[in-house]
Simulated scan of single mutants.
Amino acid sequence: MQSSVSSVSSALRSSNSGKMAFWLVVLGAALWGVDPVFRIILLDSLTSTQIVLLEHVILFMAAAPVLWKNRAELRSVGLRQVGALLFVSWGGSALATILFTVALSNGNPNAVLLLQKLQPLFAIVLARVMLKELLPRRIGSLLLLALAGTYLLTFGFSFPFSHVDDLMQLGSLLSLGAALLWGGSTVMGRYLLGSMKYETVTSLRFVLALPLLLVITASEGAVWQLPEGTGAQFAVLINLLLQALLPGLLSLLLYYKGLSKIKASYATLAELSFPMVGVLLNWLAFGSIVTGAQLLGFLLIWTTLFTISRQQDRL
């Protein structure tokens, strides 16, 4: 009898822990949507690459003590883990962003945005192949519901392009590459968290991306132009710190802590909180009107998130 009660209690704790982990990923991804609030101000003085580089310098200073504390954990890192870390830090952070940026300038922007929405599909397939994960129940209908919600958030009820040829351009292929890298980063992150602490994975992501960002920034050849006046420079510093610490450090700590307890296929759907927060902040901070189609998109995505969160008994 006591054994039965103990088993039920343990199952309840595990279920609650899984649900909490899922919502940590939701919260972590939602914080990514805060990024434009700070980035738009910083873009008046710096290029995107310079902003990301300075952000990673700040994050390096936060990550270095963590890596020193967990240095014993680094001694057991193998070649597969190094490859996964480089995929996450170089592929997911730097290269995917570059591909997506180039895609927007070399193709139909609507087609590029539409194809980027396939990221959850790539992550789910890779998680099944590489991590042997069981897929969520009713994954087909849930994925369609999620894609429909993100479509409505981005395009509303309008058709995003007038010719099928728009989907066959170079920009579209680059967008698919970015979606694959971002989806793969979720899977590689989950793989790393099977043998490493989430604090260590977060710190290594920042540290390993720094050399690549230095090379990219140097090759860009852009002039560093900080605004004149102490007040203006102080404002840039504050915005840079907030961007590094909120959509940078805090978001990934929450994200990886949650990801360490749930499957990558669940996490990639939890990441849909990102476009929702982006639309919400555009309305609150920049006065963009939220349409009926976007409200319906919100509803579809939240339905997906709540349905997935109730499936944690299978984690």
Rank of each mutant, 00 (worst) to 15 (best):
L152H: 07
E228I: 05
A148G: 06
L118P: 05
L134P: 10
T47R: 10
L241E: 05
A84P: 00
M276V: 15
V82W: 04
G140W: 09
A264T: 00
Y151V: 00
N106R: 10
G18E: 00
T307W: 09
E220V: 12
R75L: 11
Q233N: 10
A96N: 09
W23Y: 07
G221R: 15
V102H: 03
Y266N: 02
W283C: 11
A179F: 07
R205K: 15
L242Y: 10
E55G: 11
M130P: 02
L59A: 14
W23I: 05
V37I: 12
G83C: 12
F159R: 04
A123W: 02
A30G: 12
E220H: 03
V26C: 08
L253M: 05
H56Y: 14
P227M: 14
A63P: 01
V34A: 09
A29L: 13
N16V: 13
L180N: 11
L180A: 13
L126Y: 01
L114M: 15
V88D: 01
V5L: 03
L24C: 01
G248E: 05
F122G: 11
I41V: 10
F298N: 12
L252D: 00
T202H: 04
L54R: 13
A218S: 15
P211F: 04
L212C: 11
F161I: 15
G18K: 03
L147D: 04
D165F: 09
S10V: 01
A264C: 08
R314C: 00
T200K: 00
F274Y: 12
V37S: 00
G177S: 01
L167H: 06
L12N: 06
M188T: 11
L95I: 08
L24S: 01
L237I: 13
E73L: 04
L67H: 14
L295C: 14
Q169N: 12
L174G: 13
L300M: 09
L95N: 06
L53D: 15
W283Q: 14
R137G: 04
L226G: 13
